[in-house]
Design a protein around this nucleic acid. Structure first.
Lengths: 206, 206
DNA sequence: GTCTATATCGGGATAGAC
DNA sequence: GTCTATCCCGATATAGAC
């Protein structure tokens, strides 16, 4: 692997582990056994490294959020959520210091907002589809509040969980996050669907 | 006001505005028109200032969370939430850089966890009470997921809202947060109660 | 209690040789 | 592409006079 690429990989790893604000360029260089000068040859500063990482995150996330407007079932939603949580876990450093990062790197701020917006839209698309299929019941007003809550939970569940149960390593508990989001949707489902979902959840979590 | 107290007040204000990691002791001193030396006479370091602020936050929050185990109605819950959001808004710097702060100031970590735990318990107490009064319907499992979601939303709503709608000044929108939490509870309410709640919400938000 | 001056340190970043 | 050496700066914290 080329140095430029190794820098990106190690940076992501260190950012995720220690938090982006707590990782220095020297630390990154040390970890790679290269000199700081070398690092600065490849990236002109720390900001550029972060931008590169964000661009990759953004690209993957937007791709994922480009939801085809077809009929979607509960199982599809489940899978969809799982994929989203995977991407977030991969770039969790962004989420752990979200406000701070968006404050210090102003250029990514609008782009992150756009992702949030797309997430809300995707949620709305899915929920509307479920409603059209008579799987889910709810007023427009309720659906909007629901989708806001879904996006909030997706965004912050990993951090929230981390505070309560400090993870030693990479053992992020994706399943629990998916469950938590599905529990937001559950009460709006028809009785039959709800039971099925709850059963799935229990199995999934254990 | 004595200098020691003025330091605390200004620090809180600056932390809230710029984020705790971005505020220096020099900035605090400047804002008060005192010398850095003087500041360090009153507090031996920045950590001590933060601890003092956290202690005040903690004291107020725990006081609030000491929920009397009596019959609680929807309106009481509304008020209760509003008081909680007020405290959080007052010390929002903690929430904006939560993971980071808990990482760098290890001593407050267990204390914050305890507050989260108490919040979950308080939510559970309230929801159980509502269920006993037949206002709310739900299995134990559902109530637990619900209360987790409530606490998550309480914890992160302000930050989430901030990202989407950058606030120029102190105009924190408490109402919307309360609404968002209530929308989590709504689907579990009996039809009559639910309609009443939604009506209340609409009025409250406008 | 308050000030000025200063020490110390660490992180970001550059210059120039190889 | 990579290294060593170094600069610069800002932040924390202390010393000692008033």
């Amino acid at each position: 692997m080329k140095t430029r690429e190794r820098i990106i990989h190690i940076s992501l790893e260190l950012f995720n582990r220690f938090g982006e604000p707590n990782v220095t360029t020297l630390q990154i260089a040390d970890e790679l056994d290269i000199s700081p000068g070398n690092l600065y040859y490849h990236y002109k500063n720390k900001t550029e490294i972060l931008h590169e990482l964000f661009a990759r995150f953004e690209q993957q996330m937007l791709e994922l959020l480009d939801v085809p407007n077809v009929e979607i079932g509960i199982e599809d939603q489940w899978l969809f959520l799982h994929l989203i949580f995977e991407r977030i876990a991969e770039y969790r450093f962004l989420y752990k210091d979200l406000v701070n990062i968006l404050q210090r790197y102003e250029r990514i701020r609008p782009r992150f907002k756009k992702i949030l917006h797309k997430k809300t839209e995707a949620s709305l698309t899915i929920c509307s589809s479920l409603r059209d299929q008579d799987i889910l019941i709810g007023s427009d007003e309720e659906l909007e509040a629901l989708c806001n809550n879904i996006v909030l939970t997706i965004t912050y569940w990993p951090s929230f969980d981390l505070i309560r149960h400090p993870a030693d390593a990479q053992d992020i508990d994706l399943s629990h996050g998916v469950y938590q989001v599905m529990s937001l949707v559950a009460p709006y489902l028809r009785d039959g669907e709800r039971q099925a979902l709850m059963a799935m959840s229990r199995e999934y979590l254990s």
